[in-house]
Design a protein around this nucleic acid. Structure first.
Length: 297
DNA sequence: CCTTAACCTGA
DNA sequence: CAGGTTAAG
């Protein structure tokens, strides 16, 4: 397996377990998944990874470096976080976590499927869709290689019916995914164009889709469109913000918390969000920690 | 503008 | 009941 090194710190496991992408699964200790139309098998090593891929090695290597943000100067990003004891603690705890650079369509589809679902189940639905309409590929030769299915593009899904999508056990999300596929396929929504818009402008375009609210739009902005200030607020983050920054006051509204996050965490808020999110998930008892609060948030 | 129920499925 | 959104009240 070829080796790829990252600027430290980097942890493949943290990145792929983080709930940012739903197409990766562990097969015999290695991560199996697709990036675009290339199948990959990845093994984490300290501050890097070993890999095999179905396509030409040079191209695959470039894809990986981009997807995993291996060249990113991470310490510089962290340095732009607010000086905030809880965030600093989360950063120390989750060293090596990165914000992935996913394909916008796959990211949008994944998060449309995510609403009110736990990660394990989203992965299951994702896999159902990939098995039915994706392209089967092998990351390396030999019989031991797993079969990896790419995720179908918007044009493929646009031709399906709602009933066919429901066959993948996605329930009420089926019409939402179908609408999104048709909007992207038909050109009503050009995802690549969103990169050149302001974050607010791009968010508005995404939220015009049925089934895409603020949270899902922010996930797509952050994980696939390079909008590093997008700060997805889900129930975990809600808990963190309330407990850590507002002394557990229950009456603080979600809206107020979203607004607070935007000003407090700044231009790399999305990266900070990943640390908070992970820390909270790994330490469900965080709410009881003694922690100096930020004054007058 | 704020609150709440319904939406599918399966852990 | 769930890492969410929508339509209705």
């Amino acid at each position: 397996m070829p080796l790829l090194a990252s600027t430290p710190p980097f942890s493949l496991d943290l990145c792929l377990e983080s709930g940012q992408a739903f197409g990766w699964r562990k097969v015999d200790g290695a991560w199996a998944g697709a990036i675009g139309q290339t199948a990959f098998l990845l093994r984490g090593v300290p501050n890097g990874l070993e890999w095999d891929a179905s396509g030409p090695a040079g191209q695959a290597s470039m894809q990986l470096q981009h997807y995993l943000a291996l060249g990113e100067d991470h310490p510089t990003i962290v340095r732009q976080f607010p000086r905030d004891p809880f965030l600093m603690k989360a950063v120390r705890c989750c060293g090596g976590l990165r914000v992935l650079r996913q394909d916008p369509w796959e990211c949008l589809a994944g998060f449309i499927l995510s609403s009110t679902k736990q990660i394990a189940h989203i992965q299951q639905i994702w896999r159902n869709v990939a098995l039915r309409w994706g392209t089967p590929m092998k990351p390396c030769g030999g019989d031991s290689s797993p079969i990896i299915h790419s995720f179908p593009g918007p044009s493929t899904l646009a031709r399906r019916t709602e009933a066919e999508l429901r066959g993948c056990a996605m329930g009420f999300r089926a019409p939402y995914l179908l609408e999104a596929a048709r909007a992207v396929d038909g050109g009503t929504l050009n995802l690549e164009t969103l990169r050149s818009l302001s974050t607010g402008e791009a968010r508005g375009r995404l939220m015009a889709l049925h089934g895409v609210g603020r949270k899902i739009a922010d996930c797509v902005l952050l994980f696939s469109l390079g909008k590093s200030e997008a700060f997805p607020v889900d129930t975990w983050i809600l808990k963190v913000l309330r407990h850590v920054y507002f002394r557990g006051k229950r009456k603080v509204t979600a809206k107020r918390l979203v607004q607070f996050a935007a000003v407090h965490f700044g231009p790399f808020g999305g990266h900070a969000q990943q640390y908070l999110f992970h820390y909270a998930r790994m330490n469900p008892g965080f709410a009881r920690e003694k922690m100096r609060r930020i004054k007058n948030p």
